[in-house]
Simulated scan of single mutants.
Amino acid sequence: MEQQITLNHEASAGDTHKRSTSTLPPEVVQCLENARFLHLATCTDNQPHVSLMNYTYLPSSPYSPAPVIVMTTNPASKKTNNLVENPNVSLLVHDWVSHRPPTSHRRPSGGSPGPEHRSSLASLLLNLNTSAVSSISATIGGSARLAERGSDEEAYYRQQHLENNTFDQEVVPGAFHSQHQQQQQQDSNSTGDGQGCFVAGEEVRVVVVNIKDVRISDWKGQVRDWDIVPQDGPAPAINGAR
């Protein structure tokens, strides 16, 4: 029988080993730099809504000495309406490989193929997934706002986000490129496939999330909490866009 690794069912309803910091923990920064998308959760009238988003992480900028996360959105979207009504948002980001491992008792309605039906590519993805189980996921709490339309701040964040999310087709292979195009069209409400339209469109609004707290979770169920507090004095402007 294969040895099972015991999970740590640590109580996590409250603050767990909370610390305060003026910068994000290094493992969270690495996660934000590695991942391509995050999940944005907004809520109004006790009705939660989750969106898959392109994003840009900036450790600081001319407009904020603190770390921010920049996104763009269709002004007529549900998430835009939600964050205008309630700026409190939650973000989930991780760099785990998302390939689903095979289940021991496969059902007709789901589950991945067993070894006898698995392609070499699927086996490679499974191995990558196994090697990534020591990664963390980060739940980020923050306050979101729409950058003022036509402002220098909006232009700056839009440009950083565009540079960070514009890819050459030859480096965005296969299904990943298709997923990337679908996300562009979703955020821009555009039927075109022009690169960058989801950022550069005139009607697209720039969302800036000021980070308030972070929860780091690992695959064993261990959690750590951090409060992000303003640092003393202005920080140098750093371009954190990749």
Rank of each mutant, 00 (worst) to 15 (best):
G111R: 02
S112M: 09
L124E: 10
T139M: 14
R145H: 14
T139G: 03
V133K: 08
A144M: 07
S112K: 04
S119Y: 01
T139E: 09
E153M: 12
E153S: 10
D152G: 03
L128C: 11
L125S: 06
H117K: 14
G141R: 09
S143M: 09
A122M: 14
E154I: 06
N129M: 11
A138N: 07
E153H: 06
G142A: 06
A132T: 11
H117S: 13
S134I: 11
A132F: 10
S119Q: 05
I140F: 02
S119G: 04
L146V: 14
L121P: 01
A155C: 04
D152V: 07
S134N: 13
S137E: 12
G141E: 08
S120P: 02
S120E: 15
A155G: 06
I140G: 04
T139V: 15
S143Q: 12
G141A: 08
P113C: 03
A155V: 10
E153L: 09
G150F: 05
E153G: 10
S143D: 04
N127S: 14
G142F: 07
S112V: 09
N129K: 15
R145P: 07
H117Y: 12
I136K: 02
A155L: 11
A132P: 00
S120V: 07
T130A: 12
I136F: 12
L125R: 03
N127G: 14
R118L: 09
N127Q: 13
A155K: 15
G142H: 04
S120Q: 13
A155M: 09
S137N: 03
S119D: 01
I140V: 14
S120A: 15
A132Y: 07
A122D: 14
S123C: 10
L121T: 14
P115Q: 05
P115I: 00
P113Y: 03
R149G: 05
S134L: 09
H117N: 15
H117W: 03
S120L: 11
A144F: 10
A138G: 08
G150P: 08
V133N: 04
S112Q: 10
P115L: 03
E154Q: 14
N129C: 04
E116I: 06
S123P: 00
T130N: 12
A155P: 05
